[in-house]
Amino acid sequence: MRGFSLRHLLVKARGGMVSPQALQRLGVLGMNARNVDYIARYNDRDKYPIVDDKLNTKRAAKRAGIPVPELIDAFEVQPSRSRVMAVIEPLWQFVIKPARGSGGKGILVIVGREGDKYLKPSGAQVSALDILRHVSNIHSGLYSLGGKPDRVMIEALVDFDPVFDNYSVEGVPDIRVIVFRGFPVMAMLRCSTHDSDGKANLHQGAVGVGIDLATGRSCHAVQRGLRISKHPDTEMRFDALQVPGWRDLVRLAASCYEMTGLGYLGCDIVLDRKRGPLLLEANARPGLAIQIANGAGLRTRLGLIEAMELEQLEKNVDERVIYAMHQFAGAGES
């Protein structure tokens, strides 16, 4: 995979200048192959509600002993104004999110207060009326998949690990790990920027940093599909980045296989200063931008797991982590 820009190849492929067969030979997984060969084949649809609803995910994770951000309250139905205010009034920091939102939409992060105003990470102020309106919009389905009525979650704000202080702006960075049949196969750190309004979504302007599965060190970074060497806001270089507690984080991701029963999934994990890795959410249809962030294709790695004998697939969580760290060490573009 070295010696070429994965981003450039994908652009050429969309323009018909590179054939799907050529991308396949290079190990790049395309959308159609992801949908047919992996999501449809390995993810039973009756398991989707576990991950398509963040409240369901949180409850399943707690049953499985997987740590998650603290849930302060949840509104299953449209709450009264007084109930919402009773929950947020004593809080200094909190996050409001839709249970069935996607792509980071509908997430409101509050990091402090000034008088009767609430502060977003950007410094912008919102009023209690703004928050009540936001809660109502979530319930009406404004941010949910298919526009269906949704549930509202209020979570404690993650006190993220200071190792990321200069790598993320106005928001909490998260680590996405793709897990296939219980084996972690690829990882990236998503760092928020001013452009992304504190959200860790690449399509909104966040930075994707490929992470070496063996060490937790950065190996490649991109923003809006273009390779970069430092954070656009802080100018902190990514080649100095190493995620602490990496083995524990990868083990948490691998454990989501048993929790969800899904063969192909993405696990989004945050690092709390005191609690360590926490599962933020899981995704039955993880995007493919992780390949660009790593400068490497997914198909070859997935193929290695598919070729395993049945007894090899029956490894426990720790054995799967050890295998993945050894097999996929330093596999990204440097």
Rank of each mutant, 00 (worst) to 15 (best):
R275F: 05
S255Y: 04
D233Y: 03
N294Q: 10
A214C: 13
H231V: 09
S196D: 05
R251N: 09
M236V: 05
A254R: 09
A206E: 06
R237W: 08
D239F: 13
A240N: 12
G205A: 04
E258P: 00
A221T: 04
R275L: 13
K274Q: 13
E306G: 00
A282K: 08
A254Q: 06
Q204T: 07
A289W: 03
D197F: 12
M236D: 02
L213R: 05
Q204L: 15
L302Q: 01
R275K: 15
E309N: 09
C219E: 13
V243E: 00
L271M: 15
L280H: 01
I211H: 08
V243Y: 02
M236E: 15
E235F: 14
R273A: 12
K230C: 14
A254I: 04
C256Q: 03
V250M: 12
D233T: 13
G263T: 02
I269N: 05
E309I: 02
V209W: 09
L302W: 02
R285A: 08
R247N: 10
C191V: 09
R247P: 03
D248S: 15
G198V: 13
S229P: 01
G208P: 08
D233G: 07
V222G: 00
E306S: 13
M236W: 02
R227P: 07
R217T: 02
L279S: 04
T300W: 06
E306C: 02
C219W: 00
T234F: 09
L304D: 11
I292D: 02
K199I: 07
S218A: 15
E281A: 09
C219Y: 01
R299P: 00
V222F: 01
E235H: 14
